[in-house]
Simulated assay, not measured.
Amino acid sequence: MDFPLRAGGFANEPEHPRRAIWRRGGTRRRFTNEFKAQAVKRLLEGGRGLSEVATELGLSTGQLSAWRTEHLDTSKYLAASALR
Rank of each mutant, 00 (worst) to 15 (best):
M1E: 14
M1S: 15
M1P: 11
D2Q: 11
D2N: 10
F3A: 15
F3I: 14
P4K: 09
P4M: 08
P4G: 09
P4I: 07
L5I: 03
R6N: 13
R6D: 11
R6V: 09
A7L: 10
A7N: 05
A7R: 12
G8A: 14
G9H: 11
F10Y: 10
F10A: 13
A11M: 13
A11E: 15
A11N: 15
E13L: 14
E13I: 05
E13F: 10
E15V: 07
E15C: 02
H16S: 05
H16W: 06
H16I: 03
P17H: 14
P17F: 13
P17T: 12
R18A: 11
R18G: 08
R18N: 07
R19G: 15
R19P: 00
R19K: 09
A20I: 11
W22Q: 10
W22K: 12
W22I: 08
R24P: 00
G25M: 08
T27F: 01
T27D: 06
T27K: 09
R28H: 07
R29F: 02
R29Q: 11
R29C: 04
R29K: 13
F31T: 01
F31G: 00
F31S: 06
T32L: 03
N33F: 01
N33T: 04
E34T: 10
E34L: 05
E34N: 04
E34D: 14
F35N: 05
F35C: 03
K36R: 15
A37C: 07
A37L: 12
Q38I: 01
Q38T: 04
A39V: 08
V40R: 06
V40G: 07
V40A: 05
K41G: 11
K41F: 01
L43D: 06
L43W: 02
L44G: 06
L44I: 05
L44T: 08
E45W: 01
E45R: 07
G46Q: 14
G46R: 12
G46S: 14
G46T: 13
R48P: 04
L50G: 05
L50Y: 03
S51R: 14
S51W: 01
E52R: 13
E52F: 07
V53C: 09
A54M: 02
A54R: 02
T55Y: 02
E56Y: 03
L57W: 07
G58R: 08
G58Q: 09
L59D: 10
L59W: 02
L59I: 04
S60G: 15
S60L: 04
S60M: 01
S60A: 09
T61D: 12
T61K: 12
T61A: 09
G62F: 01
G62M: 03
G62L: 01
Q63G: 04
L64V: 00
S65H: 11
S65Q: 12
S65K: 11
S65L: 09
A66T: 07
A66I: 00
W67F: 11
W67G: 08
T69W: 09
T69K: 15
E70Y: 05
D73H: 13
T74K: 15
T74H: 14
S75V: 03
Y77W: 04
Y77K: 15
L78G: 00
L78T: 05
L78I: 04
A80E: 13
S81T: 11
A82R: 14
A82I: 00
R84K: 13
